[in-house]
Design a protein around this nucleic acid. Structure first.
Lengths: 136, 136
DNA sequence: TAGTGCTGGTCTCTTTTTGAGACCGCCACT
DNA sequence: AGTGGCGGTCTCAAAAAGAGACCAGCACTA
């Protein structure tokens, strides 16, 4: 009993220490992470890290994204400073999207996660299969 | 004109080369990334990387998560093999969540992104403010 | 010259996901 | 007898995402 209470207390102290004195609300890291955590954000970052692409090219590259979400996700990435949008006055006008310096910098970190996923996706699939089998 | 067509063609070759010969659908990396890309996943991974927590503790740690999403996100993380769930037969029963080895391994990669966010969140906020100002 | 297609989007409608909050049994403590 | 913590589930409303029609302008084809 007492040990449980003491245990909880020590944990709550850690809780206060998390992310520089506050709790997880108002955490500046959080909004940055959430900006990247959209369903399509990392995918588009991967594509644009490879090379600049135009709107239609991205749409073909990620066939199951809707035009609406492509527009919106690119807008959000541009707003956060990761992506540069340039309109060329050709006919019809073409729009090219590319990574900014900030975007390339962020992709460097994101890349670690992508590499991990490449190495471990079979382990994750295995865990998922085991879990589903155990549930049934 | 011709240059544009050739340009597109070369890009489409790159498109075929992306992620090992296919396009971005059916990409095994994608499902792994998307598993981590939930709104709450990375936050809970951060918390559990620090130490194991119980359900109610996590709820206090992340005050603006609903109980529903906490349950579901933990379930998903458990399903993907990142999180271990253990029920202790106390009264009332307590449930402890902790990272598995796979979870700790994945967090190593995720941590890079978190570190980047800690270093650059002000740059992102600045970009966002500039963008919003330019839009107005 | 009429038809077709490509450009990068926006607009509307439907479906899915998320959030807010009530509710549950069980037990300890007051 | 009442209150509160435990770890959830259930229902209903709100927000986000997906599907697909539509747009103007120009090039190319028939």
């Amino acid at each position: 009993m007492d040990s449980k209470i003491v245990n909880l207390r020590s944990k709550l102290e850690v809780y206060k220490a998390v992310s520089g004195g506050g709790n997880f609300s108002n955490c500046p890291v959080r909004e940055v992470i959430q900006g990247v955590s959209g369903k399509w954000s990392s995918l588009l970052m991967m594509a644009l890290a490879e090379q600049p692409y135009r709107f239609g090219e991205l749409r073909r590259l990620v066939p199951d994204i809707s035009q609406r979400m492509l527009t919106q996700t690119l807008y959000d990435l541009q707003r956060d400073g990761y992506v540069h949008r340039e309109v060329f006055p050709t006919k019809p006008p073409s729009v090219e999207y590319s990574l900014t310096d900030l975007g390339q910098s962020m992709f460097g970190a994101l890349h670690q996660l992508i590499l991990w996923a490449e190495l471990n996706h079979d382990a994750v699939r295995g865990a998922r299969a085991d879990f589903d089998a155990a549930q049934a």
